[in-house]
Design a protein around this nucleic acid. Structure first.
Lengths: 323, 323
DNA sequence: CTGTTAGCGCATTCAG
DNA sequence: CTGAATGCGCTAACAG
């Protein structure tokens, strides 16, 4: 018991001589407390799970994911919590190790999937009876012990659309990856569509599927679109990958950007700096979202409730040389 | 006990009617086994830690890291193990939650740091008495219960150097990020230097520090080098980020690539596809390394020893349009 | 100020 | 084929 007191910093419960004896023994034995035994006793595991729903095994390839994970992880680690990471396909959510067994005090999720798959996912989450933080989408369900962390994706879409319309883009194409159904990507489209709708006599916005969102797939999709319907005035990428892919395709065909065709992306993470000319984009607050998510979850664990059931973080437009 | 048998799939120890009763109760109660209690009893936690030593809080920004983590994580998750991820600065390794407490059956590490910091790190690792997998560098220490997983970085450096020399590069500059001291990056330089050394009368290779490896830092470093010593015949990036940054700087100055200056990178992860012209690079087997690391660690846990104390995975040159 | 008792949820062992 | 006793490492509660 005295050792337990020492480990937990309750030094006032013992004499200084005892402190020294205990400290020395700990060093000599190279003792590390067994956190799962402590967890068993206190029913607090000091660990949080993060499940990323993605059809690709490379579930960390996206900059958004890595920003959220590192923001969340750093926040938790600084407070003695551990982060357990797992990538899983949309239909296999229920098979996740973090869901099948009880290993964490709470779970964070980046969901994707729609329709029946999505409903199944929600049923699984409901059964967990664990505090949840859901990134990148707002879940209406009020029976869920959850907090949703989102960015102003709709607004970002509106801002870019307005920016393009001001610069004379009449016919615009939006390149949308569909391998994963991420709500945030569609929110961007909806925002842009909303703005284009108020100029519907003269302006149009068309959604073009670019599959897995790779450079090759995006360029193929855009090339097919151009062949079918001619050159648009602007191409919006639903993310920077799609935007840069479009930019490179257009330039390799000798199209002048932005004079003939304007191009935008979305997210403005590190590799946007690789684009030439620099891509106009919208800065998404990924790292900050991870931090906020961690804060909300620990607040829920310590105080019994989330501060809010939904947090929306601001975006801002990053004007580049492609518009 | 019958429930425990059921959970662990020992169905032959009970009648079919009992099976049904138990299964029904499990569903009705929404039961999930408590993995830390099981761990306490079996002294197997079914969880592996991964510590990434990086000076930046964005410890997942590098494609190598994310490939290794996802390869490792997928391998472990498929086998019922969980992956606990933590990013930590070089001097703070000992403070890691995964090191301070006992939470895992084994640890994986991506180390960086040198000199005294590195020695301290090794002392910390030695005290752990846990199986270790170390990525991206070979640790000589035989008293460590460890397996090192590396790629043929030296060979990659040699291949690129040879490729450049064949294409007439006499004076070559290598851009090296130094925020993190990663052995793998220096191995690339050493490989290239070795090849240049056998043409030392006519050819030279110079190392240029590019700080945190960001596009801005790399371009600044290269610009300063050009101002001081004139235009080189070739620029090698120690990774693709540096290579693309160099490529863009040169092109923005009107330098013809590859006619006037050749450019190479290293790793050939996703965003290499963003470069125009396509960067010549070397394909690093990040995802595969993660998988192999997971396999070695589970082999060590199940059979008592690593299959080998060191695994080296092949690289191959990816010829692009910049050489 | 220090030590004793008991129990968290599970699985090994062994008895019925 | 089923269940009772036991202990993994830890800490809340309490006794000395």
């Amino acid at each position: 018991m005295t050792v337990s007191n020492y480990i937990n910093g309750r030094l006032d419960t013992m004499g200084t001589e005892t402190q020294e004896r205990v400290g020395e023994a700990i060093r000599a034995l190279n003792y590390r407390p067994d956190i799962s035994a402590r967890g068993l006793r206190r029913s607090k595991l000091l660990s949080i799970g993060m499940i990323i729903v993605d059809e690709s095994p490379h579930y960390l390839a996206d900059g958004y994911t890595t920003q959220i994970v590192s923001g969340l992880g750093n926040f938790l680690n600084e407070r003695g919590y551990t982060l357990q990471l797992e990538g899983v396909r949309a239909r296999a959510l229920a098979k996740s190790s973090l869901i099948q067994g009880l290993r964490t005090d709470g779970l964070c999720l980046m969901l994707s999937g729609k329709g029946a798959v999505k409903r199944d996912q929600m049923a699984v989450l409901r059964e967990l009876r664990q505090p949840l933080v859901i990134f990148l989408e707002s879940i209406g369900a009020t029976d869920l012990d959850a907090c949703c962390i989102v960015a102003e994706d709709r607004k970002g879409g509106r801002l870019l659309a307005q920016h393009l319309i001001e610069r004379g883009a009449k016919r615009t194409v939006m390149l949308m990856p569909t391998l994963n159904y991420w709500r945030a990507l569609y929110a961007r489209f909806e925002g842009a569509r909303h703005t284009y709708a108020s100029h519907r006599r003269t302006h149009s916005l068309k959604l073009v599927d670019c599959g897995d969102g790779s450079v090759a797939a995006a360029q193929e999709a855009l090339a097919a679109e151009i062949d079918r319907c001619g050159m648009p005035d602007a191409v919006m990428g639903a993310n920077d990958q799609a935007g840069i892919a479009a930019l490179n395709l257009l330039r390799s065909r000798g199209v002048k950007v932005p004079d003939q065709v304007r191009v935008t992306g979305f997210n403005a993470f590190e590799f946007r700096d690789f684009s030439r000319p620099l891509l106009t984009s919208v800065k998404s607050p990924g790292y900050e979202m991870g931090k906020i998510g961690g804060w909300e979850l620990l607040t829920r664990l310590n105080e019994g409730k989330f501060s809010q059931s939904r947090r929306k973080l601001p975006v801002r437009i990053m004007s580049g040389e492609t518009t």
